[in-house]
């Protein structure tokens, strides 16, 4: 923004503080730009610290670190495969539950609800998103785990236990903790944020399109299915990927209910670990400079790579969706 108006006011030029003003602007510009660049420095430093901190593990175990499922502090042998497996599976299962829930809620909020009810329920959804993750962990451990142990897993075993090929999915003792429970908690945690994104992209569609759908005699579901969804596809996928990124990095809620076992198996109900939960659980027994700490840092670097790529992808999708909306 230049200042042509000043030229028409020659008296202004004689103002005594003029000199100071001209110095103030570049200084302020430099200050805010430096802060902005500081954000990049922080990200760069995070990446550098993770990679250098984990370097000892990568150097000791080589590429085998990525595929080894061993996590044995006694023999000083560490591998990333089990926690990576747990992270990916628990997030994927969480999405299976969360996406239908979020879509249903967003559909309800944007097309079915009376405006006053939509405001209240929309608020409730946002409050659910604001609940600290440790609370989800406690709630999961004391409320969801017993339900899974006493009802869900026995029922699943009864139905699927004798089906060849599927019985492995429900094997194991009914502890209640494990991948399935972690996925449920994660689903509850990420549903609000996916819902919020979906609602926003649904609402950003010009009302005219929605109305012309209704004008042609389409039902509300048909407008959603054939008008709103195709229009907002990128934003919806972006929101889902964003939710997945959140789920993969979640720590406290998962730590309570995952069961802490570095084991890769077919059973959905078996105790497992995610990268984040393993770091949180093992860190207290990892002195600075030890190979174990380096392995945890290396796991952190892997988590960082996974979640940053995921977040980058979701932001890219959301930005493209916004661009399409602005067109």
């Amino acid at each position: 923004m230049e200042i042509p108006a000043r030229q028409s006011l020659p008296a202004m030029k004689q103002a005594p503080s003029q000199q100071g003003r001209q110095k103030g602007d570049p200084a302020f510009r430099l200050l805010v730009t430096a802060t902005g660049v500081g954000v990049l420095v922080v990200l760069g430093a995070i990446i550098a610290v993770m990679v250098s901190g984990g370097w000892k593990a990568f150097a000791t175990f080589g590429p085998g670190f990525l595929v080894s499922a061993v996590w044995n502090p006694v023999t000083q042998h560490f591998g990333a495969a089990a926690p990576v497996f747990g992270t990916v599976i628990s997030s994927a299962l969480a999405l299976l539950v969360a996406v239908p829930l979020a879509f249903g809620t967003a559909f309800w909020l944007t097309a079915l609800a009376p405006p006053s009810a939509a405001a209240v329920i929309g608020m409730a959804v946002q409050l659910l998103a604001a609940v600290p993750s440790i609370i989800f962990g406690m709630w999961g451990f004391f409320v969801v785990v017993p339900v899974v142990a006493h009802y869900v897993q026995p029922a699943a075993r009864q139905f699927l236990g004798h089906v060849p090929g599927l019985s492995a999915l429900v094997a194991g003792a009914p502890f209640g903790t494990g991948l399935f429970t972690a996925a449920l908690i994660l689903a509850v945690m990420i549903t609000p944020s996916i819902t919020a994104v979906m609602r926003d992209v649904f609402l950003s569609m010009p009302t005219v399109l929605r109305e012309s759908g209704y004008g042609l005699g389409a039902t509300r579901w048909e407008v959603m299915r054939y008008v709103v969804l195709p229009w907002s596809r990128q934003g919806v996928v972006g929101g889902i990927v964003l939710g997945m990124g959140r789920a993969m990095g979640e720590t406290m809620a998962v730590t309570f209910v995952i069961g802490d076992s570095n084991h890769i198996g077919w059973s959905l109900f078996a105790p497992a670990n995610t990268i984040a939960s393993l770091i949180a659980l093992e860190f207290p027994e990892s002195p600075a400079g030890s190979l174990k700490l380096a392995s945890l840092m290396a796991l952190g670097a892997i988590l960082m790579a996974i979640s940053f790529v995921t977040l980058w992808f979701s932001r890219w999708l959301l930005a493209r969706g916004e661009q399409a909306a602005g067109r």
Binding site: G36, V39, I46, E250, M304
Partner: peptide, 26 residues
């Protein structure tokens, strides 16, 4: 530059908080 800063800031918004903990620990 601003586009990159905006992008990185949005990424930090959803970055796993445990990584920030490890980072500050180091």
């Amino acid at each position: 530059l601003a586009r990159i800063v905006r992008f990185v800031s949005d990424m930090l918004l959803s970055a796993p908080s445990i990584l920030i903990g490890l980072f500050i620990y180091m």
